[in-house]
Amino acid sequence: MTDAFTRQSTCVAIKDRAVLIEGASGTGKSSLALALIDRGAQLIGDDGVLLGKRHGRLHAQPHPNTRGLLEVRNLGILPFACRDEAPVALVVTLDDGAPRFIEAADSLVIDGVSLPALRLWPHAGPLALKVELALLHYGLT
């Protein structure tokens, strides 16, 4: 991975594709990651991941300072199994201003790589199912 840099995101891998989960503090990024892990996703990083390019794709890796750790509100920072790397296929932002429905994903450029991006209202469940559907319908293959 070339020129890795830190991004303030939580990240999980779902069937070999990474999803970056972003949003303001307290919007539920870690809680969403926990729900996705409960459904079979693998943790890559919580509250900070390393990103870098390989073969034109953006890849996510755990940050060495927080590798294998996930903040579970009311319980603390707990250890979890951690995946070493996955190509980023989707960026999800938890946002109170998210639209009710969309016709297509937005695009977000990170380090010169264009990624499909969606905003989800953080208070409407089931968010884990919505992320899985978003990855299926809008994520990079």
Rank of each mutant, 00 (worst) to 15 (best):
R57H: 14
R54A: 14
V88W: 07
I44T: 03
V92C: 08
L129Y: 00
H63S: 06
K15S: 11
G26I: 09
R39M: 10
A105D: 08
D84S: 15
H59R: 13
S31P: 01
L78R: 14
D46C: 04
R100M: 13
G139T: 02
A124R: 15
C11D: 05
Y138T: 01
I37Y: 08
V49D: 04
I77W: 02
R17T: 07
L136Q: 10
W121T: 01
K130H: 08
L20D: 05
G125M: 00
H59M: 15
D3P: 00
V88I: 14
G139C: 04
L50H: 10
R100H: 10
K53C: 14
R57K: 15
R119W: 00
D47C: 07
L140M: 08
S30C: 11
G76M: 12
G125A: 08
L133H: 11
I77F: 02
L70H: 01
D84W: 06
S114L: 02
G68A: 07
L34C: 11
H55V: 06
E85M: 12
S9T: 11
T66N: 15
T93L: 01
L120G: 02
I110Y: 01
H59Y: 15
L118S: 02
V131C: 09
D106C: 01
D46R: 04
V19P: 04
R17P: 04
Q61Y: 07
A18I: 06
A98Q: 08
L120T: 02
L20Y: 06
T6F: 00
T2I: 01
L127N: 06
P87A: 02
T10W: 03
L20V: 05
L108K: 09
I102V: 15
L43P: 06
V113S: 04
T66H: 15
V109K: 11
L43S: 07
E132Y: 00
K15Q: 11
I21R: 05
I37S: 06
G23Y: 09
I14W: 12
G40T: 07
A86T: 06
F5I: 14
R54E: 15
T27D: 02
G112R: 09
P122D: 10
S107R: 14
H137A: 13
G56I: 11
S30V: 10
L136E: 12
L70W: 01
D95V: 08
A81G: 14
A105R: 06
L78G: 09
S9N: 05
M1T: 03
E71H: 08
C82E: 12
L118C: 02
S9E: 09
D84P: 14
L51T: 07
E71T: 04
L32D: 03
T93S: 13
T27R: 12
T141F: 03
S31T: 15
L36R: 11
Q8A: 12
A18H: 05
N74G: 05
I110M: 13
E22M: 11
H123E: 05
A33Q: 10
R57Q: 15
R73P: 06
L115T: 10
V109W: 00
T6H: 00
A104W: 01
D38S: 14
D96E: 14
R67H: 13
G23V: 11
L20C: 05
L34Q: 13
Q8D: 15
E132H: 02
F5N: 05
R54N: 12
L133F: 10
L36D: 10
G97Y: 03
E85R: 10
V92M: 03
